[in-house]
């Protein structure tokens, strides 16, 4: 085989493989993952207090960990604003992950944005790293995607 043709084929295969693997990984990371009830992790009350999220009287809430230089964080905030506009009983806060390293450590937060969807007591209903779709979040909040 002509070396030029061989290199062309190798480069095209490389591009294809990286693009497919990248898409797969992105979908895996950004999908909203319901958290099993049996596992029952919760964001500690002192952490909620530190970020200023008061869930008293709320049906659900969300904690978004981000960074000032994180570009998708703004998109997640927009989704959360939409949901808060639709539902009076939904509250959310944004917190800089660098200012709340305790939460990041306790919940193994490696990337920003990381979003925790919370029940009133602070139990984590779902989490995602990336920009969730509003309808996915609605399903979790409506209990349609109840944790296993």
């Amino acid at each position: 085989m002509d070396p030029l043709l061989l290199r062309l084929t190798a480069v095209l295969v490389l591009l294809l493989v990286v693009a497919v693997l990248g898409r797969w990984w992105q979908q895996r990371v950004t999908s909203l993952a319901p958290v099993p009830v049996a596992v029952g992790p919760r964001v500690a009350a002192d952490h909620l207090h530190a970020v200023g999220l008061d869930l008293t009287g709320a049906r659900a809430g969300a904690l978004l960990l981000g960074a000032p230089t994180c570009s998708p964080c703004g998109q997640v905030e927009q989704v959360l604003r939409t949901l808060a506009h639709e539902r009076d009983d939904f509250r959310w806060v944004y917190a800089d992950a660098a200012d709340h390293l305790g939460i990041a450590d306790d919940h193994a937060v490696r990337r920003v944005p990381t979003l925790f969807v919370l029940a009133p007591g602070g139990r984590i209903l779902a989490r995602t790293s990336g920009v969730p779709r509003a309808d996915e979040l609605r399903r979790v909040l409506d209990g349609e995607e109840q944790p296993v």
């Binding site: 490389l14 693009a19 990984w25 960074a67 992950a97 660098a98 200012d99 390293l101 990041a104």
Partner: peptide, 24 residues
């Protein structure tokens, strides 16, 4: 290719990790 096809910027992720390390 990763950035062009998926929007995933590995260098940007490293930058954010560096910021958190500095904060720590």
């Amino acid at each position: 290719v990763l950035l062009a096809t998926t929007g995933l910027c590995v260098g940007c992720e490293l930058y954010l990790v560096g910021q958190r390390l500095r904060a720590r």
